[in-house]
Design a protein around this nucleic acid. Structure first.
Length: 292
DNA sequence: CATGAGCGG
C-alpha cells in the first residue's frame, strides 16, 4: 500500500520518479504531409536522449484491397520477373471459373447466346420421340393418365424372380410387394401400398395453390414483372408474379398472375387494383380460376 | 382478346 496519493496507474510503480520526470513525446504536422515526432527518453546507459523522427502516414496500398484489374498491373516477381503480363502455362495453372448461383435455376443477367452446339442439342431433344415410361404412350411420363395409379414399366413388373413367377406382378397389386426389394428409384408415397386403393386424395389431382392468386388482364405489353410486383406488394406479401409472354418473341401477352401469401391481401389488392390505370391501359384484376 | 413454365428422355 505504498501508492502515491493522486496516482491511479499502478503499472508505472516500477519507476515512478523517472517516468514522470520525462516529457511526453510531441507530434507536429508539417506542410508536406509528414509529421515530426520528438521523444525524450533514457538510453541503455541511463542518459537522457532526445530523438527526432519524421514520418509519413500511408493509407493506400497497405490497408485498401486493390482490385483484380489493379493487381494485374503489378510487376511480376520471382521466376516470373520481367515476363509479359498474363498467365503463362509453364508456371501458372488456371482454375475453373466457378459461377455463383444463389438459387436453383439461376440465370445470369447477361445471358450469353447459346452456342451452335447447344442449339443442336436442344433441337435434337425436341425431335426425340416422346414415349411414356408408364404406358409407352405418345406423351411424357408426367402427363400420363395413369401416372397416379401405375409405376413406370420395369419397376412395378421387375419384382423379385421368386415372387414374379407366382404373382402377375405387372399389376397394381405387385407394387407394394416390390417396394424396397429391387427397385432403385423413388416411389412417391401416394403410390405405395397399391396406389389409389389406399388413401383418399383431397379434391383429386394436384393443383397449384391458386387460392391467393390474382389474374391481371389488360396489361401493357411493355409491362414487366418487377413493376407488377411493386404495384401489388403494398397489399401484402407477394410470392410470385407471372407475366405471360410469347415464347418466340418474348413480348408480353397482356395478362399476368400475382400470388399472395394471404388470400385476404389478395382480396384487398383485387379490390384496389381493378380499374387501376397502368401505362395507357386500365387493369382488370380478378381471382384466378384453377390452373391448367 | 387473354387462365402460367419447365423438368425429362
Amino acid at each position: 500500500m505504498s501508492n502515491t496519493p493522486g496516482r491511479t496507474d499502478w503499472a508505472e510503480d516500477d519507476e515512478p520518479d523517472l517516468a514522470s520526470a520525462l516529457p511526453q513525446p510531441t507530434r507536429t504536422k508539417n506542410k508536406d504531409g509528414t509529421e515530426t515526432i520528438v521523444t525524450v527518453f533514457l538510453n541503455e546507459d541511463g542518459k537522457k536522449v532526445k530523438r527526432t523522427q519524421r514520418i509519413r502516414t500511408i493509407t493506400k496500398r497497405i490497408y485498401e484491397k486493390p482490385g483484380v484489374a489493379e493487381r494485374r498491373q503489378w510487376p511480376k516477381m520471382g521466376i516470373e520477373a520481367n515476363r509479359a503480363p498474363g498467365p503463362h502455362s509453364d508456371t501458372t495453372t488456371l482454375g475453373e471459373n466457378i459461377i455463383f448461383r444463389p438459387v436453383v435455376g439461376y440465370k445470369s443477367g447477361a445471358a450469353e447466346a447459346p452456342s451452335a452446339e447447344e442449339d443442336k442439342k436442344t433441337e435434337a431433344l425436341k425431335k426425340m420421340a416422346i414415349k411414356c415410361r408408364i404406358c409407352s404412350g405418345d406423351h411424357f411420363t408426367t402427363k400420363c393418365p395413369f401416372k397416379d395409379t401405375m409405376a413406370p414399366e420395369g419397376e412395378a413388373g421387375a419384382g423379385p424372380p421368386d415372387l414374379g413367377e407366382e404373382v402377375g406382378s405387372k399389376t397394381l397389386e405387385g407394387l407394394g410387394s416390390g417396394l424396397g426389394k429391387g427397385g432403385s428409384s423413388y416411389v412417391p408415397p401416394h403410390m405405395r401400398n397399391g396406389g389409389s386403393a389406399g388413401g383418399e386424395r383431397m379434391g383429386g389431382k394436384y393443383e397449384r395453390d391458386d387460392l391467393a392468386t390474382l389474374r391481371v388482364t389488360n396489361v401493357s405489353e411493355f409491362a414487366e414483372e418487377d413493376e407488377l410486383r411493386a404495384l401489388f406488394e403494398r397489399f401484402g406479401r407477394v410470392t410470385r408474379v407471372f407475366l405471360a409472354k410469347d415464347r418466340e418473341t418474348g413480348r408480353a401477352k397482356g395478362f399476368a398472375f400475382v400470388s399472395f401469401v394471404d388470400r385476404s391481401d389478395a382480396a384487398l389488392a383485387c379490390e384496389k387494383m381493378d380499374g387501376f390505370g397502368y401505362g395507357h391501359l386500365i387493369l382488370r384484376v380478378e381471382f384466378a380460376k384453377k390452373a391448367t
